[in-house]
Simulated assay, not measured.
Amino acid sequence: MKQEWLGTDDIQRWGRISVEDFVRDFEELNRLVLLLGCLEDWLVLEKWDREYLIGVSGDIRFTVGPVDYFQYADSAKEERPLYLFDLSFTDKLPSLCMDYEGA
């Protein structure tokens, strides 16, 4: 990283911003922003552990490439491990949608 970049901090920081304001002021303008305090009240941080997710997913399997996600997560040693990103997540497990605020 260039030294001059380290001395410049022009990224806006916002806490408690509405989705509409975020989209209008940052996403549509392709502007960087650090969102502060967004996860403090999110109950899934305590609720969604491995045992809970396996319990609610039943026979549904999520994969990272050719392997089961939990198998991968148990053995991953990478500095930048893969994360689960499944576009049909809400179709596969609609009950988990209720854990999102506003769902």
Rank of each mutant, 00 (worst) to 15 (best):
R13E: 15
I60F: 04
L82A: 15
W5Y: 14
K77Y: 00
E40Y: 01
R24N: 05
L35G: 03
R61N: 06
D99W: 11
W42C: 10
E101P: 08
L39R: 05
D86Y: 14
V56I: 12
R50S: 08
D41T: 06
R61M: 11
A73M: 03
V23E: 08
T8Y: 02
Q12L: 13
D99F: 07
G65I: 00
G102A: 11
G65T: 06
F89V: 03
E79F: 07
F85Q: 07
V64T: 06
E46M: 10
Y100N: 13
N30F: 09
G7A: 15
M1Q: 11
D86Q: 14
I60Y: 08
E40T: 05
C97G: 11
A73W: 04
V23A: 09
Y72G: 01
Y83V: 08
D68P: 01
D86G: 02
G55E: 02
S57M: 10
K2G: 04
D25S: 13
D21V: 04
D74K: 03
I11V: 14
V33W: 05
G37F: 04
L82V: 09
G102S: 08
S18C: 01
I60M: 10
Y72T: 02
T90C: 09
T8P: 00
C38D: 05
S75Q: 15
T63N: 10
D49H: 10
R13H: 09
E40G: 06
F85I: 09
W5L: 11
S57Q: 11
G58Q: 01
L39S: 10
M1L: 09
W5K: 12
I17M: 07
L84W: 12
R61I: 06
E27A: 07
V44D: 09
K2N: 04
A103N: 12
D41H: 13
V44C: 13
S75T: 05
E78Q: 08
G58Y: 01
D99Y: 11
I60P: 00
F22Y: 12
S95Y: 06
V64F: 04
R16H: 15
K92L: 10
S88C: 14
